[in-house]
Structures are given as structure tokens and as C-alpha cells.
Nucleic acid binder design. Structure first.
Lengths: 218, 218
DNA sequence: GTTCAAATTTAGCCATGCCTAAATCAAAAT
DNA sequence: ATTTTGATTTAGGCATGGCTAAATTTGAAC
């Protein structure tokens, strides 16, 4: 159930657009028929967690959003804890956090935040929502879509793909690193240069798709 | 499933006696009929996790024992972590550990043990089994059954009852504390004196039942 | 040895969340 | 405006682990 709410949050984005059953099914790795069933259940909870109109997708209700952001907070606090305290590498944290996020108590959440010093950012550069907070989406854009020549800073990286994360670490493409896209090779790859380094890096579109950037920090 | 294995481990004790469906049902807070169903399932796993003869109870198989001790290790490592790192009080750790013990990975277990310094004892005085180890039962006996006048040391306390734990903490009846049973009042209470203190404490049988002791440490 | 009570098991049901296959709807193309 | 096709929903099953109520077995008391 939590997984559906989280997927809705992430797929509907800042505009809170409706999300189709198919999109949810793909994201969650289940069949569309299962999604329909679950959406019906979520919509018939009291209070409803999603607003669902058949054949036109679903979006989160207020209660659904609250719960979804809470789970995201759990996830990101756990990732940071696993990384900083338990010495997980950054490609290992997602899977474990994904499992545990559903089971930690309010107290665990609070204590974790306390020993981590009320952190704002997780190991992949994602903002950790405040408690009871509605969370927010930052205005980052995929590196793939960034205009060549314009200085950018990596704001975050997609956390779900361990192999990609290992590769990004090897290339030192980490959050807060400044770079410039030198040249785009639309169907295949991207040439980038990290600020303050001479050499160029060639990134597959696949890999660049995992990197999100914002305009150069002053 | 894990819960059944753990309950079997704890109820069958060092002698590995068979445990009846009823005893399991009581410990797990489910109906006896549910226990029968689960025992049948556990016995028909490959390899079987329990050895079950209908109408005469069940005991753990080797594989069942392995899994049960692993869960106990998870539980006690988590309790110690919650207490020492996340600053839980000792009456709060059980419930959270009970939930999380099922979901932490091997890696989590290992890292936890590492940052805790490969600990041997949890906050309630219970031995933390070694990894892959078969665990063992220490020769502790309930304070209620300890002979009056013979010096004893608290080895551990029952971790499942938060109210009792708060009371024990208030009275300073903690693991490694030495004491003597002054007088027994079979149907009601116990008079004890903590070593090096003048005053006597009156413990209800109920409370004393939560305390386990061993012969005085040299 | 029979009876009876308590313990245990069987039978059949509920909810959760997944599945496949079949039906249906909606929207794009004619 | 109709057809077609792809998206979506319905219908009916499966496994998990609970439940109640009704058998059945065991073992203790006569």
C-alpha cells in the first residue's frame, strides 16, 4: 500500500497530475489488473488515500500525500543512516531502506533524525522532507536535457540502480559536483567536463539519465 | 513463520522438549487451530523447519533452530542498538526490535554487530548468539525459585513487559546486580536485599517472575 | 475397560495482494 | 460517425495466516 502511495507521489510529480494504472503497474513491477484492485481499495479507505476515477487514473488525496511523504522521509533518513553510520556504500542503501521504511516507528524516525543532526539531504542528493511536512520537488532537470555549454551542478542522482551508482561514483559524478555539457550526441551519449578538470567524460544516455542537475550554484 | 520458530525455541528450552499447540497458541496470541495449520506448513517445508507429530506437539529441526537463533540474534542486536545508539529506554526496545528483526538483511546484521563492537549481551542481560552459532541457554533460574539466604546475581530480565521493566529500573534491579532473598511469602511476594544496601525491597511474585538469577559471581 | 473432559485437528471462511484471461471502455483514425 | 486498438477493468484463482465451529483424539478418572 505504501508502495502505491510512494509511486503515485513520484510519478505524478509537482503538478500532481493523475497517474494511469499502466504507469503504476510498470513502476511497481506488477500487472495493471493488480493496480486497479489496489487503487479501488485505496480510494475506498476512510479517509480515502487516493482520488480515483476509473479509466482516468488516480492521484493522491491529502491523507495519501501525508503518508507518502512520511514514507519518503523514512526512506531518506534510513539511506543516510545506512550510509553514514552503518558504512553502506551508496549503491547499497536503497534496497535496504526500501524494505525497512515500512516498519520503523515514529520514535525510530525521530531518534534517527536526532542522531543524524536533522539532516536535509540524503546520500543521493535528495531532500529529506520535514516531519509532517508536505515535502516538495526541487526544480532539477535531467542532465540529458541540459543545454550544452551552460554550467550546471549535479543536484541528485537516481537511487534505484546500484550498477549505475557504482559507475557514477567511479567517475566522481556526485551531488554538488559542477560540470558542463560539452557536446550532445542525441541517440547515444553525452560529452561532459567536470569543473576544474581537464579531461572529458563520455556518458551513455542511459547513465546520464540517472543524473539530475540545477543551474550552477553561485 | 519466524514468530513460530522463535516461540518454539523459547518454549522448548535447553532440553528441546516438544511444545504443544496450545502453549504456542498462548505465547503467540493466536488460536490453537491457527497453530496447527502453521505447524503443518512448517513441517512440510523442504527442509522441514519443525518436527511435528500430530497430537503430540512439535520441536525445531536443525534448519528451524538455525533460523530461530538467527532471528534471536537480530532481535538482541537491534535491542542493543536501539538502546545504546538511538537512546531508547530499556522498556521501549523490545517492541521495535520484535518488528524489525524479520526485515533486516545479513549486511545490516553484520554492520550493526560491527559498530556495537561484537557485543555479547543485550540490554536485558540476554546473551547475543554468535552468527551461524547455535546459541545456548544459560543456567539461570527465576528469582522466585531461588533459595532464601543464598547470594545471587541478576543475570537477565524478561524483556516483553514494559511496565515491569520500568518498575525494575526504578528499583535498580538490573542485570549484574547482586542480591539476597531474605524471605519468601509463597502466595504473594518476596523480600530481597540488594548487596551493599541497607533497605529491603518487597517484590510481588508477578514482578519477581520477570527476574532471572545465577549463583553469586566470584 | 469405559467414560468424559480437555487438547487438538479438520473444515470452511475472511482479508491481503498478487496473478491470468476475458470483457469493456475510450480515444484515435478513418 | 464508425471502427479499431490499446488501455483498463472485471471475474475468478492462488498463497499467506488469521478466525470459528465442529469433529476427533488422548489421557485421566472411574
Amino acid at each position: 500500500m505504501d508502495d502505491y502511495l510512494k509511486a503515485l507521489l513520484e510519478l505524478s510529480g509537482p503538478a500532481e497530475a493523475r497517474v494511469t494504472s499502466n504507469a503504476l503497474a510498470e513502476r511497481l513491477g506488477v500487472r495493471a489488473a493488480s493496480v486497479t484492485g489496489m487503487l479501488q481499495k485505496l480510494a475506498s479507505q476512510r479517509p480515502p488515500l487516493v482520488l480515483y476515477e476509473k479509466h482516468r487514473g488516480a492521484r493522491l488525496s491529502l491523507a495519501g500525500k501525508r503518508r507518502a511523504w512520511e514514507i519518503v522521509r523514512h526512506h531518506r533518513l534510513l539511506e543516510l543512516f545506512l550510509h553514514d553510520v552503518l558504512q553502506y556504500s551508496w549503491d547499497e542503501v536503497h534496497e535496504e531502506a526500501e524494505r525497512l521504511e515500512h516498519f520503523i516507528s515514529e520514535r525510530f524516525e525521530d531518534r534517527l533524525a536526532a542522531i543524524l543532526g536533522d539532516p536535509q539531504i540524503d546520500p543521493h542528493g535528495h531532500a529529506i522532507p520535514q516531519k509532517y511536512g508536505a515535502g516538495s520537488f526541487s526544480p532539477e532537470v535531467p542532465l540529458l536535457k541540459w543545454p550544452p555549454g551552460v554550467p550546471a551542478t549535479i543536484s541528485s542522482v537516481e537511487d534505484r540502480d546500484p550498477a549505475a551508482l557504482r559507475e557514477l561514483e567511479r567517475l566522481q559524478l556526485l551531488p554538488r559536483v559542477a560540470l558542463v555539457v560539452e557536446r550532445k550526441n542525441p541517440q547515444a551519449s553525452l560529452l561532459v567536463r567536470i569543473a576544474g578538470r581537464p579531461e572529458h567524460l563520455r556518458l551513455s544516455n542511459e547513465l546520464a539519465g540517472h543524473v539530475l542537475v540545477v543551474a550552477q550554484q553561485s
